[in-house]
Simulated scan of single mutants.
Amino acid sequence: MAAATKTFDIASIPADGVGHEVVAAGREVLEAIATNSGGQFGFEWRDFDWGSEYYARTGRMMPEDGLEQLKDLDAIFFGAVGWPTVPDHVSLWGLRIAICQGFDQWANIRPVSMLPNVQSPIVGAHERDLDWIVVRENSEGEYSGFGGRNFSGREGLGEVSTQSAVFTEVGCERIFRFAFDLARTRPGKKVSKVTKSNAQQYGMVLWDEVFDRVAQDYPDIETESVLVDAMAAKFVLRPEDLDVVVASNLHADILSDLGSAMSGSLGLAASANLNPDRRFPSMFEPVHGSAPDIAGQGIANPVGQFGSAALMLEHFGLDVEAKSLQVAIDRTCEQGILTRDVGGTASTHDVTQAVIDNLG
């Protein structure tokens, strides 16, 4: 077989639990898409065994020079991080956030849509044509890592911890412009900004002010400002009014999980951690966790990983192939080939094979 015209070098990091199963499934689907391209492109996979097992052997979630090993690759295909033997803050900061911050992957996008045959807890979800994207500021805010713990030597309950949320004009402006540019590509042409500036009078007031300034450069885009608690209610009560929702690191993390639950399962949710400047590789991962309770049983839902693969294809400019994969996911759901978390009986392998069979 002739060599592919374009080869994408991809880091494969399954990490923990069901991450191994869904990354393997995602790679199968991507290889099928590459085969269908007739040699136009292909993938070169670089395997990394980082994660909680690596931590048990070395005391680190990834090597000290891990970012150096990844920096020249085209993308990172990630599974899930976390295992009961490693504290969650150690596993997350030692691998996923280390990559996100180290590569300035400042824009995290998490689409929310209703898949055929998947029951949503929202009444009439499929008839209401619900489809929106959460844009998460992914580099600062509440997950900046600024803070510490002190006074542990005091008697009684004397220890003090601080955790600072950091908002910068640069960080706010770039994520808002990203959200507005994205809204221009969508039918709704609306950006909903999530805030809590009534209670957080410094960081989130700056957040609001920068949004208002940036919005002036996009007169064609409708805007609204919604307090995070009101937005949580709006997700449930008026989701048809949503198009692009932009929020801080913490707020978007929570709201996007709510959106995933509304679509029927966290196992369906895809995401992309983007370095839009393309100075570093971007990372594509499902939203779900490592699911220790079902890991190794072959029943994990791979759809979130497939959706993340579609986002990676879009990032590479392979829009036709990305659309083909999304259509294959829809067809598979229409056929009732669903895993247990969404009411079916299919295995990870069953869903994977069906999506491959349904590729255009």
Rank of each mutant, 00 (worst) to 15 (best):
G147A: 09
R149H: 05
N150M: 13
N150E: 13
G153T: 12
G153H: 14
R154S: 12
R154Q: 14
L157T: 11
G158Y: 10
G158N: 10
G158F: 10
V160D: 06
V160L: 13
Q163K: 13
A165R: 14
A165D: 15
E169K: 15
E169D: 11
E169Y: 09
F178T: 01
R184V: 04
T185Q: 15
K190E: 02
T195N: 14
T195L: 07
K196H: 05
S197M: 08
N198T: 14
A199D: 05
Q201L: 15
G203F: 04
G203L: 11
G203N: 09
W207D: 10
W207Y: 11
E209C: 09
E209L: 11
Q216C: 06
S225Q: 14
A233H: 15
K234H: 10
F235E: 00
V236I: 15
R238L: 11
E240L: 07
D243M: 08
A247S: 14
A247I: 01
N249H: 05
N249P: 01
L250I: 12
H251M: 11
D253G: 12
D257T: 07
L258H: 09
L258P: 01
M262G: 02
G267W: 00
A269L: 03
A269F: 01
A270S: 15
A272T: 02
L274E: 00
P276A: 06
R278I: 02
H288T: 09
A291P: 00
P292Q: 10
